[in-house]
């Protein structure tokens, strides 16, 4: 099964809506609540990063019997140094975004903690692709 969602950059009023849709579907499919909790954190952070840092993006969620894979792909500024971006506390969020309580530099670390496999690819001035995989067993 595969699901697609569009994510609009800069539109904080809708931030989290794609993640919320996926959560509903996983609940309906009776996926283990512990898995849902982890997946939701990772998806939300990847979604908000598109809203906060990029122009637009897409989320594709693929559900297999043994795993859930989510790819969040955006057009945007890209990430020059991914290792640096992964560090807790590192953020380039604008003052407006920080005022809302975003920009703690905890989103990518949250993603890392809440999926089993994480693969980030980015091209500066083009975009970023975040691929997250979570397995249902173990």
């Amino acid at each position: 099964m595969e699901f697609h969602y569009h994510i609009e950059g800069g539109d904080f009023s809708r931030a989290g809506s794609a993640s919320s849709e996926v959560k509903k579907i996983l609940k309906q499919l009776n996926v283990d609540p512990r898995v849902i909790k982890r997946v939701v954190v990772a998806l939300y952070e990847a979604e908000v990063n598109v809203v906060a840092h990029a122009h637009e993006g897409n989320m594709t969620v693929t559900l297999d019997p043994g795993s859930i894979e989510a790819v969040v792909e955006d057009k945007g500024p890209g990430i020059a140094d991914i290792d640096l971006a992964m560090q807790e506390g590192y953020s380039t969020a604008s003052p407006r975004v920080r005022e809302m309580g975003f920009g703690a530099g905890m989103g990518l670390p949250n993603i890392k903690k809440n999926c089993d496999r994480l693969d980030i690819k980015s091209v500066v001035n083009a975009g970023t692709t975040v691929k997250m995989t979570t397995f249902f067993t173990g």
Binding site: K37, V41, Y44, E45, V48, M100, G101, F102, A104, M106, G107, P109, N110, K113, N114
Partner: peptide
């Protein structure tokens, strides 16, 4: 901080905030 809550809050908790 929203991603602090996202990462660490648990189901059923009361979230106290100024946001």
């Amino acid at each position: 901080l929203l991603s602090d809550v996202m990462g660490h809050a648990r189901e059923g908790q009361v979230w106290i905030t100024i946001q």
